[in-house]
Design a protein around this nucleic acid. Structure first.
Lengths: 213, 213
DNA sequence: ATCAAATTAAAACGTAAGTTTGAAACGCTT
DNA sequence: AAGCGTTTCAAACTTACGTTTTAATTTGAT
């Protein structure tokens, strides 16, 4: 028996996710999407209402579970340990990202790249909808890191978290600044596990480094 | 006497730089550009040939001097010191970025954001033209970091440089992952000098952290 | 002042975009 | 099998895009 063909809406979501990552939102046309999804052009507007609403659907399908996974890991860790290590905190974020990256059924590494693109493109969706729904994400991690690194002031901690999530995020998204300048794809030919092997120590070292006098 | 109005080509470049950053290449139309630059629609194609060529001009106007500044700092440092510290190496990259960020006449922080967008959008320009012209950039930094951190294997060093440039780059571009989830703009309300105060220690700590047994 | 080159201007061209429409096909309950 | 809401389909609509064209204007050297 063959794998049953997903319904129209799902086919549209899957193809859109890939095309939005490859070409960006503006450069991806509904005709490209519907052609590759083998559905009628009007199907997008019928099922989602508009191209903008389609984008939001593509986005939220992956983001909600990812955030939930991170917070679940955080819950579990806080229930298990009294004093949280920075490395274990970092891992609560990295493990769900890693799991997502290795699971083609959930879009694999595609969604992290989409998130990255969307962040840089500064979509209205991010500024409005998501920042309201998931502000708890930052709050939880801020509290946890504050307990793990009590010697850091709030400003310094905010910066270090900013840097830490920035580098983790771009690592999973495969955004290699240096590949701009060189053809070698050594780093970008990414085995997700390899990323973590080098990523965690780097991030932890930056987070725990002693404050300057 | 009033400031003389720049010539048409310059006005187009200035407006394009801002609009490409704000809306991206695809979402920026020649009509938006020429309208805000107060020039005729046909001026873009007359002076630059095409929208693609305009983008390349916008991009190279800033990139070439920035790269040159970094390499000049590197030259100067290598001529002055025998053994290079990681921090001084990091600074050869950060100082030109900082100078650029603080100089509105050269586009200020705009160009770093444009570079960031272009990287994520994976433009043909980056894959082809620039990687050939500026591969020396990566080579120089790779050699310098290898001398400063001889105990690191080539693979581990490549990853750490990848992470280091990633976080520096995103810091200057103002790409704050966490701002997705929270309205507070504490981190993003960026005084460039503040960035450096916290950025350098973070990056250096990650780069020099001991290799794991 | 003149003339050739460079630049600006207005208008139109062909194409592709997102969206809408109305009919046909389908699936399910009765 | 009939009827009805849901979904699919082909086609057309409006709009905006990048680009080209042709003429008007400005510029600069003789």
């Amino acid at each position: 028996m063959e794998a049953s063909r997903p319904d129209t809406a799902t086919r549209i979501l899957d193809v859109s996710e890939r095309l939005f990552v490859e070409h960006g939102f503006e450069a991806t046309s509904l005709r490209m999407i519907t052609q590759q999804a083998e559905v009628n052009l009007a199907a997008v507007n019928y099922h989602f209402g508009s191209k903008d609403a389609l984008f939001e659907s593509v986005f939220m399908r992956r983001l909600a579970p990812l955030i939930a996974s991170c917070l679940a890991e955080l819950d579990e860790l806080e229930a298990r340990e009294e004093k949280l290590s920075v490395e274990s905190l970092v891992t609560t974020f990295i493990r769900p990202c890693l799991a997502l990256s290795k699971d083609p059924a959930r879009g694999g590494a595609l969604f992290v790249r989409l998130l990255s693109r969307t962040l840089v493109e500064n979509h209205r969706l991010l500024r409005e909808t998501i920042s309201q729904q998931y502000s708890v994400f930052v709050q939880r991690y801020s509290r946890a890191f504050h307990h793990a690194l009590p010697e850091l002031g709030v400003e310094e901690l905010a910066w270090r978290m900013h840097f830490a999530f920035s580098v983790m995020f771009n690592a999973f998204a495969g955004n290699d600044v240096l590949k701009i300048f060189t053809r070698s794809q050594i780093v970008s030919a990414r085995d997700p596990d390899m990323i973590v092997k080098y990523l965690v120590p780097f991030v932890v070292a930056g987070l725990v480094s002693p404050v300057e006098g």
